[in-house]
Amino acid sequence: MDLFAKLINDISRLWTKYSSFYLGGIWSTLKLAVIATVIGVLIGLVCGILNTIPCGRNDNIVKRAVLKIIRFVVRAYVEIFRGTPMVLQAVFIFYGLPYFSNGAVAFRGNSGMWLAAVLVVSINTGAYMAESVRGGIISVDPGQTEGAKAIGMTHVQTMIHVILPQALRNIIPQIGNNFIINIKDTSVMFVIGFVEFFATHRNIVGVNLMYFPSAAIEMVGYLCLTLAASFLLRWLEKRLDGSDNYELVSDDQLVMAAGTYAHPDRGTPFDERHKPSRDEVIQEVKIGKQRGER
């Protein structure tokens, strides 16, 4: 019990002294993870859609060639960024771009570091999401596409209004996975000097050597972040699914909807007695104007 008391004592000492650093680290981690996940999902969406453009034998040669090239590029991107460690990618891009451009392109200062970190993490997320999105699109029943085509929707309309909403719903668990992975894996960005939650720990223990108490804080911090993230995603999933119940509509909706092209107060073109004209008539009656006098 003494050791536990000591640990708690150490943690509270660390926290009172460095809480703003820890909280700042958490904030950076969260910001980076959210931004990179959003961008990554967008990249994944684009790649997934490009990968699932239908292409039959009847399409002309140019379209088929262009699609082949696009698919090759996407495939190469996915394989390369999924197949190499993110730490290395970070180093590769952060130091590689200045090296190759003789310093013309470089990530300078704090904003440069942010840019590099967001770039690396989102490109990495995108590579994973590309496959998830492709899977999500494939998993939607082909009948949905046929139903949409049968009422005259184009490929783009079918995608936007019918397939992608369902595919997105299907890949929310995957997005959640990636978000949680990003919260944790952004810690490798310390290699380019990016200060997030884990880098804060490194900086603090570098001064006072209280490795274990600080690591305990980190553990609890990361766990809280990821638990909150899972909770949020579950909630989002539930929201998207909508209620299990529905209400029967017993009154006549058609009567209620009829003539609502414009708001009733403004009247409809078909309504002779809408308010403005009624007011006009009343006004005319008041000032004694007759139709014949006009």
């Binding site: 046929e146 085509k149 009422i151 005259g152 929707m153 184009t154 209004h161 019918v162 369902q166 719903r169």
Partner: peptide, 29 residues
């Protein structure tokens, strides 16, 4: 697509849009 909008189709497996309500299904097209 233009031609299909003049020719309605009802499928064996319904193919209603699962992400929309009944009303929305009939409105979207």
């Amino acid at each position: 697509p233009e031609y299909r909008s003049h020719v309605g189709m009802v499928f064996q497996s319904f193919n209603l849009f699962n992400n929309m309500s009944v009303l929305e299904n009939c409105i979207v097209g």
